[in-house]
């Protein structure tokens, strides 16, 4: 069953899209950039956890996440109202306040989505306004056979957990703990190395927006390169 095509207006631009589909991917396809971190293309039900893709929808009370807003005929969307910009900026500042901001020694320097979003929002990568929150984790967790994880860089967007769950042979990445202590866990590594059932497809490292999760091999090569410099 193909959905009915309807016309919507996003920041004064008219777009035709299937009714009932989610707003964020439609905007992205139509060259209207809305910052986002937790969304992965093709997700059936995006978690809406990063809260960066907030927009205003006429007739709907309060800011709405575009990744879970269904398109309807005559929908009028603003992605850049003053309130939205401010909320996004605060969300961004909150995210970077937990980040160690060591761009220069980071494997994803220059390909980092956080850097791109900072540019788009015209926000510095180190917030002066908020104090830095140091999450109580080691710099590096490297006891997985194929992966390394740098928890202090992790924004807990959950993309890796999501893609890992779509890989055929059951999933191995999962969130553990709660709140600020939440961590992406390999299990296996912490509890029982013998149970690691990773297919080394590296899908998780490919979706990581910030280089918190990397292939062990590539990461070692990168560090070796850094040391040479």
């Amino acid at each position: 069953m193909s959905a009915e095509m309807v016309t919507i207006t996003v920041d004064d631009k008219e777009i035709t899209a299937p009714a009932g589909s989610y707003l964020l991917p439609v905007c992205l396809e139509n060259d209207i950039y809305i910052p986002n971190l937790c969304y992965v293309e093709g997700m059936e039900k995006p978690p809406a956890s990063c809260r960066l893709c907030l927009v205003e929808i006429e007739g709907v009370k309060g800011p709405q996440v575009s990744c879970r807003s269904e398109i309807f005929a005559g929908m009028v969307v603003k992605t850049n109202s003053e309130e939205i910009l401010k909320l996004r900026q605060i969300a961004f500042r909150l995210l970077v306040s937990t980040n160690d901001g060591s761009c220069r020694t980071c494997i994803s320097n220059r390909s980092c989505e956080l850097q791109q979003i900072a540019k788009f929002l015209k926000q510095p990568l180190k917030t002066k306004r908020l104090r830095h929150i140091d999450r109580d984790y080691p710099e590096l967790i490297d006891d997985h056979p194929y992966l390394v994880y740098e928890p202090k860089k992790c924004l807990l967007c959950g993309r890796c957990v999501h893609v890992c769950s779509t890989i055929e042979k059951g999933y191995k990445l999962s969130f553990a703990k709660r709140g600020m202590d939440t961590i992406v866990s390999f299990f296996g590594s912490e509890l029982d190395p013998a149970s690691v059932d990773c297919q080394d497809c590296f899908a998780c490292t490919e979706v990581c927006p910030v280089g918190s999760l990397s292939s062990k091999e590539k990461w070692k090569a990168f560090i070796a390169g850094l040391d040479k410099k």
């Binding site: 999933y171 191995k172 553990a176 703990k177 709660r178 866990s185 299990f187 296996g188 912490e190 029982d192």
Partner: peptide, 10 residues
């Protein structure tokens, strides 16, 4: 998966 169990337990 053990990950699932650990994720819940914590």
């Amino acid at each position: 998966t053990i990950g699932n169990v650990y994720g819940i337990a914590t």
